[in-house]
Design a protein around this nucleic acid. Structure first.
Lengths: 368, 368
DNA sequence: TTATTAAATGTGGACGTACACAAATTGAAA
DNA sequence: TTTCAATTTGTGTACGTCCACATTTAATAA
């Protein structure tokens, strides 16, 4: 059994071919293609019919080569920890930038402190003075981000969102994980076969103000959704553990206090930030063993903890891919004039020690 | 806190720039770039030094636009069930084909019956008469594939492998899943918290000859590796269930016989082919409930079973992406003359009913 | 009609690379 | 020296699209 579905060896349709078929000049076809006007309705229709009928697609290489206008993109993302999560997003943006550098597009990066909204506001001002053609940013601070997006809209500067989403912002595209679902999934993995009657640590990393990040809050909601749906509280004690980013010593002490106050053994733990490596470090320091720990993000420290068996599952969200795709979508819209999707969820990736290597390597090579 | 790491607004280095710097003509630079010879050692070195120092990268758009030679690729993959797994790989190849059609590359598809090695051999003969510039194929039949690869090598035709791997074949690239690890992962998910003392169905789909496919055998090995490592047999009865693709009625009867012979309740089941939807259908027909079923591949039928709660987990392997990437690697090697990796494992993707939608949609959009 | 303006349409160069072909240089033999 | 071949080096055009600018046509007013 075989079958041959070869693509025909037809020379691809060119603008000049369309022009010949419609008995006009290539320039007129070009005006129709780009809606530049100055074309009689009669010829316009004739040309459009041919484009439709023959399914004309411009040669992307010729187009890219001849596009003159240089563009300036600006990214604005957190930069507190240089080895952390946000670095992956920046790497993804840089990889996309390299890939499209033949388009004469340049990208500048600006950073802010994800724990300080004033630093965000300051940075947005700088960004606006640069008069960029498009902006990539992460709406970590919801109100401030809405205000910023409004200013961008006034200036007709399109933007894309990365990592977390704010529904009311009118942007070209958003890439990030469905936080509710990733929290729900964490709960599924944590409670499956966990010994009933035991305790589970529900850990949050709080900002100085005492609130968690946009994403962490949603993950917790997703987690608790599972807890309610499955009447988890009937069989398990859910113990909250609030950590603060600043003082590691204090966190350790607090953990000890919480653990000591538990009447039953702790069999599981989840943490909604990417700091799971710290949690398992602290658990190790306190000689607590046999806890199924679930955390987020494929940071090297987290991967190490996963491989060492101190973390049972990591939930990953392809941050590099997110950075890569937001930039590519800007290109798609601004250069190729193609439509983009507003909301794009990256998959909830479940990693175990056995499969994490292939996961990381594959993502790595995808962006090579 | 902010920082500006802007890319410099330098005009990218062109061949003419190198020519000017080396005080030669663009043609000579071109000869060095393509190792076409006919260049004096002195000038060659001068030019190579500049290329190295200034980190010259050709403009991919200009290159693609001016490349004259058309190429002909041929794919050779199974085609028994039109709605099945292999269709995804073909779709991926087609998407890549569309994306690179501006390169004047055409791709022809040939198919064979994955249960009949003679049909494979017949197809390979047809492929060879086509004198393709490169071949994509899936080494479902190991010996036959090695022989085919040898013939390709004699004719200097490069090839890439998709889905399953044969180490001894000298190909440009292979894309597929690490079957051992995906089998191991299936076991992890299946046994986590499963009631001890119960039975587990280990299901295989066998070819007419009585052997399973290359991949299915490896998955089972991985599964059994977990079983041994964790001394699973101490707590669970592992019951083998061998199904045959041809006769559905017979399969149902056989399942009933096996179930009836079980002394303890069946709490879990795994199947190493992509036919899990059939297994859960049969279980439903026999009114068997409360079985945690794990299967492979995101076929629509399987996804439906997952969403209906009749399958607990699906393990997916991005077949569309595999087809897409093998073709892109051919392009990378033959047109861009860039190195490729020989062995590329796609991640072991774990899907639940809650996260499968985002997974599918994301993969869909990636290839748009 | 002709002059004037506006709209429609056509023309040609540029983008950076590949490659065919022309020209120049070198070296050796006559 | 000339002649011829071999080798090196330079030149010019094509690839398909974009877009600025030139030219033509149509519409209107004088």
């Amino acid at each position: 059994m075989e079958e041959n579905t070869s693509t025909e060896e037809i020379q691809r349709l060119r603008i000049t071919d369309i022009a010949r078929l419609a008995d006009v000049s290539p320039g007129t076809v070009d005006r129709v293609l780009h809606n530049r006007g100055h074309v009689s309705p009669e010829k316009r229709e004739r040309i459009e019919a041919i484009i439709e009928e023959m399914n004309y697609r411009p040669n992307v290489f010729a187009r890219s080569l001849s596009v003159k206008k240089a563009m300036r993109f600006v990214s604005l993302i957190p930069n507190f920890e240089t080895t952390g999560y946000w670095d992956y997003i920046r790497k993804g943006i840089n990889k996309a930038q390299k890939e499209i550098s033949d388009h004469r597009i340049i990208t500048e990066h600006y950073f802010f402190d994800q724990y300080d909204n004033r630093s965000f506001n300051d940075a947005t001002k700088k960004v606006l003075t640069k008069l960029p053609d498009a902006v990539i940013f992460s709406p970590v601070f919801i109100e401030e981000s809405i205000a910023f997006a409004k200013k961008l809209e006034q200036r007709n500067i399109p933007c894309v969102l990365v990592d977390s989403n704010v529904e009311t912002i009118n942007c070209l595209a958003y890439y990030g994980q469905h936080s509710l679902k990733s929290g729900y999934t964490a709960a599924q993995l944590l409670f499956m076969g966990l010994p009933p009657g035991s305790a589970v640590l529900l850990t949050r990393s709080l900002r100085p103000g005492g609130i968690g990040s946009n994403q962490a809050v949603l993950r917790e909601q997703g987690f608790m959704m599972y807890v309610r749906e499955n009447k988890i509280r009937r069989n398990y004690h859910i113990v909250r553990l609030d950590l603060h980013t600043s003082d590691m010593e204090k966190n350790l002490k607090h953990l000890k206090t919480v653990l000591d106050s538990c009447m039953v053994p702790v069999s599981g733990a989840v943490i909604f930030s990417s700091k799971v490596y710290r949690l398992v470090d602290d658990l190790a320091k306190l000689k607590v063993k046999g806890v199924r720990v679930i955390g987020y993000d494929e940071l090297p420290q987290n991967v190490a903890a996963l491989k060492a068996g101190r973390v049972a599952y990591l939930i990953a969200q392809r941050p590099e891919m997110q950075g890569y795709l937001v930039l590519k979508d800007l290109l798609k819209h601004l250069v190729y004039k193609q439509p983009t999707h507003r909301t794009n969820y990256v998959p909830v990736d479940i990693l175990t020690k056995e499969i994490v290597d292939e996961y990381l390597q594959f993502n790595q090579r995808l962006n090579e």
